[in-house]
Design a protein around this nucleic acid. Sequence first.
DNA 1: CGATTGTTTGAGGCCAGTCAAAGTTAGTGG
DNA 2: CCACTAACTTTGACTGGCCTCAAACAATCG
Lengths: 252, 252
Amino acid sequence: MPNKLNNNGPEAIDIRCANDQKISCNSCQLNSICLPISLHVDEINHLDEIVQRSKPLQKGSYLYRTNETFRSIFAVRSGSVKAISVSDNGDEQVTGFYLPGEVVGLDGIANNIYTNSVIALETASVCEIPFHRMTELSARLPSLQHHFFRLMSQEITQDQRIITLLSKSNADQRIAAFLLSISARNRRRKLSATAFCLPMSRTDIGNFLGLTIETVSRVFSRLQKQGVLNVNRKDIDIVQIDTLRRISTGTT
Amino acid sequence: MPNKLNNNGPEAIDIRCANDQKISCNSCQLNSICLPISLHVDEINHLDEIVQRSKPLQKGSYLYRTNETFRSIFAVRSGSVKAISVSDNGDEQVTGFYLPGEVVGLDGIANNIYTNSVIALETASVCEIPFHRMTELSARLPSLQHHFFRLMSQEITQDQRIITLLSKSNADQRIAAFLLSISARNRRRKLSATAFCLPMSRTDIGNFLGLTIETVSRVFSRLQKQGVLNVNRKDIDIVQIDTLRRISTGTT
DNA sequence: CGATTGTTTGAGGCCAGTCAAAGTTAGTGG
DNA sequence: CCACTAACTTTGACTGGCCTCAAACAATCG
């Protein structure tokens, strides 16, 4: 039952694909992002057999929760999700946003339980990849094994970029870098790199970037006043992307 | 040629082992940290054959540098190292400290070049594990493959803990959490969890925690005045570890 | 329509950064 | 052995950027 979704363009196609059992990794528009270029067609077919496509997640619903037993990793197929980790004293930290083609759940491997919870920011669909079947297949397909090592390494380098951001950058630089990250990931998905709709709230952005929502809002207003951005609620239009780059690197 | 090293206890033993070609992963005191418990003795022997043990790194020397071609991951055998990442605008971020039994180099897998540089904080020795040989072996030894997935997942969850720390905690909490982290890792190595010598400078600590050296120094002084710590240059003696835990969680 | 949630804007305070200087340690060479 | 230097650490006074508190505004939904 295809339900109405608040998405724009390619997302709609993805949702239809997710509900179509005949769809495969081979025909997926996202496979250049999600899968290694080095996998051959027949290797992808093997992978395809173990991938499970489930019905869309509604906004706000959990893909998995902290401390649940780890069984699968998930590739976002449409929509978007956030990962949050809850610390001892109870407050939440958004550790990442995941857009179509990106993979979540890698945190669960370490101790066989997920350390994060993952929540849909909007209606989203995912491809579920049972971990034990993936590892079995990896032993037979060296390029698949290598791909998953690379995926995990990418998550590490990405997290370390965020560490640097939080450790060294002021509010303007964090927001600029954040917008540029979304922009670049949209470009990779053949979407506009300058005009897009943020799927997450100001609260999520602030939480992720270690800022209060007031500060996030103030920086957006300031950048708009400076003519760098046009902001209308969640719609972002990057007017001067080079200026944004200079801001993000602190090059005044 | 065994050279004089400024280390205390177990380190000295490790160094001698590193120079002794007869030493193996099976006899290594650190294998409970470095290797998976699930590996059988004969499996460890296979791994042992591909591990290369090189002569100690001198303090301040590089294990590898940013943008060098990725070939190997490394297990710290004695001493300690720091990983730093250099951002576009040139300044450095310490992304982690690695103590004996811990593994560095996982950042290099993603793009076949190291994104970080790794530098010895003191005289240190490492076990080099050529990545392509490790992956070959992993395809034949499922528990080894699983172990490396776990290692990488641990690095991810560790980095995400640091993200939370930088995003949510004040200076006191950061220092407390940092000391507790070192303490726990010492305990795992059967060393004192309350009395130890920090291998890194105040500058490194501040860089890692997103604080200035002045703030680091002030927090140390304050904690000492409060009777929580005894600090003498790099020697730390945790007097009230429960108080330190309460500080780290923000439980006033 | 009211209620709720999310966003924007303003005023004031505080924590950590900046600047500055003194104290301490380690290393070097005479 | 000591004088000297360089590097590191500590402490103080001051500043500023972001947080806190508060209130108005906007959007969404039943």
